[in-house]
């Protein structure tokens, strides 16, 4: 038996794909912004906070970095309702993504903070800057410039990882692919096209992050 590829079978479903793509993009953008915010706070607490807070952040980072995203997602979506915290699949997807990227970016930004020479902090303090000012203008600024490439690739990885949220029925691009596949039984065509869409998305995202980096994140 030979199988004939039939990509036109996808055409009637272009709107499903478009909505899925939109969801994936929004999910990525929101969780990137929120995740980096969490990471900045986490890294600051890890480097300059009191020992108990620093330890707590460390546990959070190690727990998330050493477990699969899908298990985190299932835990949040299926596990938390048992404690009375019921979340919609969309909310659970957003929370899981932020929690996940938050942990990774904490670790990445912390590495950047570690690389800032101690003399710079002392110089800032001796100029009568407050601790927050030192953190904001001296430490974080340099840290971000140093770790920006690592952070960018983590964002792309998280975007690709977001395909997993389809498993709790969050309506992302992969969910759309599964839906279409269940309608027209053209599994290979659907997944191939959607894989290519992800590929384009990741190339565009990398390009966009480089533009943002060139514009806003400068060394010195």
């Amino acid at each position: 038996m030979t199988y004939h590829l039939e990509f036109s079978a996808l055409l009637p479903y272009w709107q499903d794909l478009a909505w899925g793509l939109w969801f994936t993009v929004v999910l990525t953008v929101v969780s990137t912004v929120a995740g980096i915010a969490v990471g900045t706070l986490g890294a600051s607490a890890r480097s300059f906070g009191p020992p108990w807070l620093s330890g707590l952040v460390r546990v959070y980072v190690e727990l998330i970095r050493n477990t699969p995203f899908i298990v985190q997602l299932f835990f949040i979506f299926f596990g938390l309702p048992a404690l009375g915290l019921k979340l919609s699949e969309t909310t659970a997807a957003f929370i899981a993504m932020v929690v996940n990227l938050g942990a990774y970016s904490t670790e990445i930004i912390r590495a950047g903070i570690d690389a800032v020479p101690k003399g710079h902090i002392e110089a800032g303090v001796s100029l009568a800057m407050t601790r927050l000012e030192v953190l904001r203008y001296i430490v974080l600024r340099q840290a971000f410039a140093k770790i920006y490439p690592a952070l960018s690739s983590q964002i792309v990885i998280v975007m690709l990882g977001s395909a997993v949220v389809s498993q709790i029925s969050a309506p992302d691009l992969t969910y759309a692919a599964n839906f279409i596949q269940s309608r027209n039984f053209r599994a290979f065509e659907v997944y191939f096209v959607v894989a290519l869409i992800y590929l384009v998305l990741s190339i565009l995202l990398r390009y966009l992050l480089r533009l943002i980096g060139d514009r806003f994140v400068r060394v010195g």
Partner: peptide
């Protein structure tokens, strides 16, 4: 490398599992 690094692992699994089966 670009393909395998630029697409979700989940998609790759689907392509292998559902896609290849269609070719008999």
């Amino acid at each position: 490398i670009e393909f395998f690094q630029g697409t979700p692992l989940l998609m790759q699994l689907f392509l292998f599992f559902f896609g290849v089966a269609l070719f008999g």
